[in-house]
Design a protein around this nucleic acid. Structure first.
Length: 425
RNA sequence: GGAGAGGUGGCCGAGCGGUCGAAGGCGCACGCCUGGAAAGCGUGUAUACCCCUAAAGGGUAUCGCGGGUUCGAAUCCCGCUCUCUCCGCCA
């Protein structure tokens, strides 16, 4: 959520940013509405405070008069207080209404894109920030997509998942399960080696937590909701992990905070069918190792670069062809200021699969969750960043497809200490 | 699930309905002291919002959360929630 004061002081920047997100002139009017409402809010706040100050002063003198035994005068003052009180009640209601309206509008304003974000409407307009420098791998004509390989080698079973739960809940088994666990451990070990503290958070969160990272109120339908207890299944570890520091004021010397977590991720994502979502390409439950950083505002873009390098290192070691995209204004997430997507080339499907999304949210999340640090006297909002390092399901899909041979699927060398086997056959 | 106790500032811990944003202690910061340090002494030490602003200052709200009583609530009443202890159940 943007700060009203920021909008007020940087109105042109904000408008330009929203245009980059393809806001129409009519949609841009929301900014003036916000500023008007905030002015009204201040006005009401001011009147209310004055009234309450009067009330407090009167109450105090009533106490004094009572002590001196001057009951008559005290009674007169009581009448005045009653008058002030009824006025105050009305103002309080007005104030609450105004704040609510203001908040509703602010929730509709996305983060302002970083200057480097390219203009564009759809994913086709994303900039290839770092292309794959070598030729793409070619597989023989009889190469199988990963969902066929899964059957052939009994690695995972989607139909069994349908029996147990429903579509999009794969059951990994045998070497498939072991591969999954190996990747998780590999990613966690690498993150730990890079200085990230390992966290094991709850997989269900409450509404306050979901709101702070921006899943609520807008993206409610993307999450599974446990209505009986009003909990949400996490769509990513970002949600519980970032919220660890919700409403905290950190010492500047404690920055940066670097955390990593493995969790399953649950996404409803209803709607899409066809080859593009077959197999592991899009599922309702998948495993992911996430990295999260809380950074000083002046260091956050250097941190973002570091995270890109970290993810690149993982993919290098897995020997997977990948490219990095810089998302355009139209394709970027609501809360992000700058996002890089990593895509791995899936040779059997002959298409790129998104396996990581690395973003700087600047103060958008930290404002909503009042996450601050102290430099000198005043607390300041800090910057939050996160990235997948990495998302498992599509990595597995690409590994299976790219590494298939007549003798089975070859496990990359970096992973063998974790799998305990060199091939799936 | 049953019974009881309790939630006060970064922490501990006081708090007859008005003088309480809140004693005292610890911690922390700065200063004095010291060759240096410790001890000692002194000063300061919450957050949000509003007004004012060069700086300073003033106001409102916040003692788990929400509501009520009252001229006035950390203090009284009601609901909720969380924690702890005992019992039960259990991976």
């Amino acid at each position: 959520m943007l700060q009203v004061n920021f909008i007020r002081e940087n109105k042109e920047t904000v408008l330009a940013g929203l245009r980059k997100r393809n806001f129409s002139d009519q949609q841009l009017q929301i900014i003036d509405q916000i500023l008007d409402l905030d002015n009204a809010r201040k006005q009401i706040q001011s009147e209310l405070d004055t009234l309450l100050a009067q009330r407090n002063a009167l109450s105090k003198s009533i106490g004094d008069l009572m002590k001196q035994g001057q009951r008559d005068q005290a009674e007169q003052l009581k009448a005045q207080v009653a008058e002030a009180k009824s006025q105050a009640d009305a103002l309080e209601q007005q104030l609450a209404d105004t704040k609510k309206q203001l908040e509703d509008l602010l929730y509709q304003v996305p983060n302002i894109p970083h200057a480097s974000v390219p203009h564009g409407i759809t994913a086709d307009d994303n900039e290839v920030y770092k292309p794959w420098p070598k030729p793409l791998p070619q597989l023989p004509a009889d190469a199988l997509p990963h969902w066929e390989l899964a059957k052939k080698y009994r690695i995972f079973d989607l139909e069994l998942g349908v029996k147990l739960t429903g579509a999009g809940f794969p059951v990994y088994r045998g070497k498939g399960a072991r591969l999954e666990r190996a990747l998780i451990n590999f990613f966690l070990d690498r993150a730990t080696a890079a200085g990230y503290e390992e966290i094991m958070p709850p997989h269900l969160v409450n509404a306050d937590t979901a709101r702070a990272t921006g899943q609520l109120p807008d993206k409610e339908a993307q999450m599974y909701h446990v209505t009986l207890d009003d909990f949400y299944l996490i769509p990513t570890a970002e949600v519980p992990v970032t919220n660890i520091y919700r409403e905290a004021i950190l010492d500047e010397k404690d920055l940066p905070v670097k955390m990593t977590a493995y969790t399953p991720c649950f996404r409803r994502e209803a709607g899409s069918y066809g080859a593009h979502v077959r197999g592991l390409n899009r599922v309702h439950q998948f495993d992911k190792v996430e990295i999260v950083r809380l950074e000083h505002p002046e260091c956050s873009y250097a941190a973002l670069d570091e995270m890109l390098a970290h993810v690149s290192g993982l993919l290098d070691d897995l020997e997977l062809p990948y490219r990095i995209l810089r998302l355009c204004g139209g394709d970027m997430g609501f809360t992000s200021a700058l996002t890089f997507d990593f895509e791995v080339y899936s040779a059997a499907q002959k298409r790129w699969l998104e396996v990581s999304s690395v973003s700087n949210f600047e103060t958008f999340q930290s404002h909503r969750m009042m996450l601050r640090f102290r430099d000198g006297k005043q607390p300041r909002l800090l910057h939050t960043l996160n990235g997948s390092a990495l998302a498992l399901a599509r990595i597995v899909a690409a590994l299976l497809e790219n590494n298939q041979t007549p003798d089975g699927i070859v496990v990359p060398a970096a992973l063998r200490p974790y799998t305990g086997f060199e091939r799936i056959d």
